[in-house]
Design a protein around this nucleic acid. Structure first.
Lengths: 227, 227
DNA sequence: ACCTGAACACCGTTCAAGT
DNA sequence: ACCTGAACACCGTTCAAGT
């Protein structure tokens, strides 16, 4: 069997030629499925129809690869549109960040951990700061604002990532397990689960907007202390 | 050389006898120093003067060990005192959580990721819910409150963990690196760094209280919609 | 310029064997 | 009851060798 036949018969899609972008894209897909620990250089090579060692022609090492993945995430989040009012822009940014982090949950703990931020990361940060400054935020208040906004969005995404898979029976199973013997020893948890979380139509995702409004209201108040 | 002499001459402290608590404590220390990836069963065994395989007499596997570490973190955070006013209790809880996560930064992404929460975790959650309910929060508002509070505290801790080591010249080095060629292409970032972050007395840690007040004010407002 | 094979120093975990 | 040695199936990364 020739090499070509082997490639065709396997489920390995070997694109025309390997390049950095396709390595990064494949790595993100692998992390989406198995978490950041499920991403290994050897499996990544295999999925691209290549030996692991070939990847080192396109990334310096695994750390460099993860840097590129994180920068791609910031690129996907998108920058505020110049001239957009700050509250609209920050709402869009928060929702976009949260949405991107929902499909790439491995990225949440990594966003703030890069010692060498990429081009998209820098561009995104600068555009966000600019939006707040143009909206009338002083430099210190801008620092307050971005720390608060990002803390909320990252923290919410972190919680969301830890939830059992969405809309599945698993939630009910978990709830029943909690209720079983623990109802008496943990009455408030039992109450929350039975009277709220297991109710038809409850979705943790809906909590996001409540908190975001609180955060934005707080910033608006800090911006205009005259009320 | 006898085994005892070998033990004495090495820097390995082999306590009287290995037990679960000491394994967990040593594991936390190792993760504190090298992150969660720096914690390996083999190194942990070595640090306890034992082969890695001996650890499996006290923990089922690495996952079980991490479960125990996370539960210990919740234990360290401490529960609200029964009867304490909700705002005081939530302030104390937030500051305690943030303080514990600062010394155990590896724990931040793990707090919400455990599918089998430990006893301290359950106790802490139930006590927190109870504090809010007794403070007059409805069940749905309690769900809003805890999601918002934890998102903020976890997200802030995540950002703090990603910072260069505290109070060191590294911050200034990083700032200078940013300023070097990037001042023109990233004006708002350059402004923030030069006019705020590198200023004497600036400390990112101080941002915490601002955001916490915004969050608590928002919850107080949601609790008393009559003003 | 890109890919490979062999090698090195690691992992988590099992299992039979020791005390 | 607890610990160990050898083994298995993995890791990231290097380096010389191939095309």
């Amino acid at each position: 069997m020739s090499d070509e036949a082997a490639n065709e018969s396997s489920n390995v899609r070997r694109t025309r030629r390997l390049d950095r972008a396709s390595v990064v894209a494949a790595a993100m897909g692998m992390a989406d499925e198995g978490g950041i620990d499920g991403l290994t250089m050897r499996k990544l090579g295999r999925s691209l129809g290549v030996e692991a060692m070939s990847l080192y022609n396109h990334v310096a090492n695994k750390e460099d690869l993860i840097d590129a993945m994180v920068d791609e995430v910031f690129d996907m989040i998108g920058d505020p549109i110049p001239g957009e009012p700050w509250r609209e822009a920050m709402t869009t940014r928060a929702q976009s960040t949260r949405s991107v982090l929902r499909t790439h949950p491995w990225a949440t703990p990594l966003l703030d951990s890069r010692t060498s931020p990429g081009a998209a990361t820098m561009r995104h940060l600068d555009a966000t700061l600019g939006c707040l400054r143009n909206g009338g935020f002083s430099v210190p208040l801008t620092a307050h604002a971005i720390a608060l906004l990002d803390a909320y969005v990252y923290g919410f995404s972190l919680q969301e990532a830890g939830l059992p898979f969405e809309g599945r029976d698993e939630t009910v199973d978990l709830a029943e397990a909690i209720m079983e013997g623990l109802g008496e020893s943990h009455p408030h948890l039992a109450e929350l689960v039975s009277e709220h979380i297991t109710r038809e139509g409850y979705d943790f995702a809906d909590e996001f907007d409540f908190g975001l409004e609180v955060v934005l209201d707080g910033l608006e108040r800090a911006l205009q202390p005259q009320d």
